[in-house]
Structure formats: C-alpha cells, structure tokens
C-alpha cells in the first residue's frame, strides 16, 4: 500500500515540477507592515496585469520584519508603517508612498461618538474603566490593543503619548482581528488602520475631528502615520519601476480608493 502511495506522490511531484518549468520572470518580494499588505497586494495585482514579465510576492510579518528583510535582502522592498524609523533603517532608502490614519473604533451598538485625546489616553491606561465616565452606557470598557512589536501599536502610542497600556487589555495580532474582536463585543474599543474600516465597526471622532480622508489630509485628524517602502541602496530596475508606479497618479488613485491617504 505504501509503495503505491509513494509512487503516486512522486508522480504528483514530477507533474508539479514540469508544470513549474518554463517561467522566466523578474521576481520582487515585498515584506513587512501588515497594515499596508492588502494594499500592496492590490497594487501588485494591478501592476502585474500590465507587466507580465514581473512576478511580485507580498508577505506580511510586520514593520520590524520589513526593515530586517530589506537589510538582509530577503525582500527587495521592505514595508514599514512607523512614525520613527529604527536606527538600523539608516542604511535603507525610504520612500513615503502613502499615509495612514489610525482610527479608534467601537462596536456599532456603542453610542459614544467622540473622545478627547486625554480620554483616549486614560482609557488605554486603564484610568477610565467604564463607558459612563465618557458619556456612554454603564458598562465596563474592554480595551483591545495590538501585540508588542506592532508598528500600528507603536505609532499609536507615540502619537497619543504617555501610554502605559492597562494589563486588562485584550491583545490581538492584526488589524483584522482587532476589527473582529470589536465587532463581536459591544463594550470594546480598539484602533486600526483607517483603510480597513468597514460596516462592522464604527470609528469615533477624536477631539471632534472625524477620521476621514479629507480631515487627515487637512492635518486636522491627528493620529496619522507615514508608510515607508524601504530599499537597500538606490531603487533600480523593476523595483524602481514598481515604486514609481505606486507614486504615479494611477497608483496613488488606487491607494486613495482603497482607503489610504495619498503620499502628497
């Protein structure tokens, strides 16, 4: 019986190997920021549809991985969404390709519509524990944050300042899981990339400023971070072409329609 299975298996491998031959493409790997990953995939899809000779792979991993893999060469382009780039990123050429607002989100069942920056700080520090303290219903606040090392979390904490996260905070490891957790819990508050808002959750105003593309562009909504593409040395060849494409009117338009803020 095993001989038969092994036979079938090796046959399958041979078929797959043959199927894999005959491709001769330039391949580019992007790695890093999970916040920018879905947009990068969309941009890559569009780019590949007009440039058949290029194959672009987009991987997540987080901003730290973006910096690391660009340095090590594991990826030609690193993606990072940090307010301040780390020291070791000095050897890389950064290009801001977009900006991203960080929205504070609640469950749609929650009636609170506005928090001041100070209130946000105290909620995440665990000083404000109940929604009634900020004008909501009498129910405990469930703080949802990102894991240590997340670019979104460090950006959020750097912009809001003086945050030492409450130990009661639930921790989720991506924008999507934050969104799901908040969507499932009427008492929850979390934060995520402005580009990933959807109908399951509701973004609130910070200091009476709504988290919209217009107000972010106008500089009125304060929680915004840049998105960097990092390349070792000067961008060349297809890598440069792809970055240029992202910065072109068409690329920036994609960024805008998918919910991010254009670089300029």
């Amino acid at each position: 019986m095993f001989r038969k299975t092994i036979g079938l298996f090796s046959l399958a491998i041979v078929v797959l190997l043959i199927a894999g031959c005959g491709k001769n493409k330039t391949s580019i790997t992007l790695a890093g920021s999970t916040a920018f990953q879905p947009f990068a995939e969309k941009l890559a899809e569009q780019y590949m549809s007009t440039h058949a000779n290029v194959s672009i792979t987009v991987q997540g991993g987080g901003s730290a991985v973006g910096v690391q893999s660009a340095i090590s060469g594991a990826a030609q382009i690193g993606m990072a969404d940090l307010v301040v780039l780390p020291e070791e990123a000095k050897q890389l050429t950064p290009t801001i390709v977009a900006r991203d607002g960080i929205a504070l989100v609640l469950n749609p069942a929650n009636k609170v519509i506005n928090l001041t920056m100070q209130q946000v700080r105290e909620v995440f520090n665990g000083k404000i524990k109940n929604w009634k303290e900020v004008g909501g219903a009498d129910s405990p606040i469930t703080v949802v944050s990102r894991e240590a090392g997340s670019g979104t979390r460090s950006s959020f904490e750097q912009i809001v300042t003086e945050i030492s996260l409450t130990k009661d905070a639930l921790i989720q490891d991506s924008n999507g899981t934050i969104r799901e957790t908040v969507a499932n819990d009427p008492n929850a508050i979390g934060y995520l990339s402005h580009g990933l808002l959807n109908e399951k959750i509701r973004a609130i105003k910070i200091d009476d400023q709504e988290c919209t593309t217009e107000l972010i562009t106008a500089g009125k909504y304060k929680i915004v971070r840049p998105i960097f593409l990092l390349v070792k040395g000067d961008p060349q060849g297809e890598v440069k072409n792809f970055i240029d494409y992202i910065l072109s009117a068409e690329g920036q338009n994609t960024i805008k329609t998918t919910g991010l803020i254009p670089a300029k």
Binding site: G61, V65, A148, S150
Partner: peptide
C-alpha cells in the same frame, strides 16, 4: 505565536 512574527533581537 502572537509576537513571533514581529519580534527581532532580544524580543
């Protein structure tokens, strides 16, 4: 599993 993908260095 939560922090592995983002962790570098000492972390």
């Amino acid at each position: 599993a939560l922090e592995m993908s983002y962790a570098t260095g000492l972390h």
